[in-house]
Simulated scan of single mutants.
Amino acid sequence: MSGLIKSSIARKVAMALSGLFLVFFLLQHFSINFTSIFSPDLFNELSHFMGTNPIVQFALQPVLIFGVVFHFVMGFILEIKNRNARAVKYAKYNGGANASWMSRNMILSGLVILAFLGLHFYDFWVPELVHKYVEAHPEDPTRYYHELQDKFISPVRTGLYIISFVFLALHLWHGFASSFQSVGFNNKFSVAATKFAKAFAIVIPLGFIIISIVLHLSKHSH
C-alpha cells in the first residue's frame, strides 16, 4: 500500500482498475434492477438468488465493499497529491486551460456518490441484514419488488436518487474513459473504447433514473 501511495503511476493504475471493477458491478446491478420495471417476478427471482447465494453474500459482497472503499480512498489520496503538486507549480498551471471542469472536480462528484452510497446502504443493505440476521424472518422470495417499490414512495427520496445518478453520470463521463488510458489502453481500439465509455456514462445513469421514476409512479398509481 505504501508503494501505491508513493508512485504516481501506480496510484493512477490502481484507481483505474478499481474503477473498472466497480463499473462491472454497476452494470450487473443495473441489469437486475431494470427487470423491476417490466417483470416484478423476474426481479424477485434474481434478487432472491443474489440475496441467498453464499458465494455472492460471503465472497463477492465483501470484495465489492473493499473495492468501493479502496476506490474512494485512492481518490482522496490522488486529490491531495494533485493539489500539492498544483500548489508547487501554481505559476505555471492553468487548470481551466488544461483540463475539463469534470476532470478537475472528480472529488466533488465522488463525494456526492459516496453520500448516495450511504443512503443506499441505509435503504437496502442494512434492512436486509436486519431482516435476515437480526429479526430472522423466514425467507420470502416474493418480497423484494415490494420492498424496492416502497423506497420510492417519497418524491423527496426519489429526487435524491435522481440527483445522485446525475452526478454518477458526470463522474463516469471522465472517470470511465480515462481509466482505459491509465491502464495503457492506447491503441487502435482506444477511440472506440472512449466512445463506449461516454455512452455508458449516459445510458446507465439514465436507466437508473428511469427505474426510479417508474417505481415512484407505479406505487402512486395503485
Rank of each mutant, 00 (worst) to 15 (best):
Y161D: 01
A177Q: 04
I80S: 02
S190N: 01
P155R: 09
K219M: 10
F72Q: 06
R143D: 10
V56R: 05
F66I: 15
F43R: 10
Y145S: 11
F180E: 03
S179I: 01
G159F: 00
N105Q: 01
I107K: 02
G175L: 00
V126L: 14
I209H: 06
K195N: 14
V126S: 08
G184L: 05
V126N: 07
H48Q: 08
F196Q: 00
I113M: 11
P127C: 09
I9S: 15
I210C: 01
H137N: 15
R157H: 04
L26F: 14
A177G: 07
R143S: 15
A99F: 05
L170F: 05
L172F: 06
F72C: 04
H146L: 12
F58A: 03
G110E: 06
G175F: 08
L64I: 02
T158L: 07
F167R: 08
H216Y: 10
A14I: 08
T35W: 04
R86W: 06
V88A: 08
S2F: 12
I202W: 00
N98Q: 09
P62N: 04
T35F: 01
N186R: 09
L46T: 02
K6S: 15
I77H: 02
A193W: 01
N105Y: 03
F152L: 12
V68Y: 07
L170A: 10
I5G: 13
V68H: 07
L215S: 12
S47M: 12
V88P: 02
E147Y: 10
K12Q: 15
G175V: 02
W125T: 15
E128W: 11
H146Q: 14
F167S: 14
N33C: 11
F38T: 06
R83P: 00
A192G: 11
T194I: 04
F165C: 13
N98Y: 11
F70A: 15
I9H: 14
K198G: 09
V214P: 07
A10I: 09
V56E: 11
A14S: 12
N44K: 09
F121M: 15
A97G: 07
N105K: 00
T142D: 12
S18V: 02
A201R: 00
R86P: 01
S109A: 01
K89P: 00
F189A: 13
D140I: 11
G207H: 00
S182H: 10
L170G: 06
P127G: 07
V69L: 14
L119W: 12
V56T: 03
H222R: 13
I113N: 03
I9L: 11
A87E: 04
V203W: 00
M15I: 03
A59S: 08
R143Q: 15
V203D: 02
Q181L: 13
P54R: 02
E147W: 10
A136P: 00
D123G: 10
L217R: 03
N84D: 10
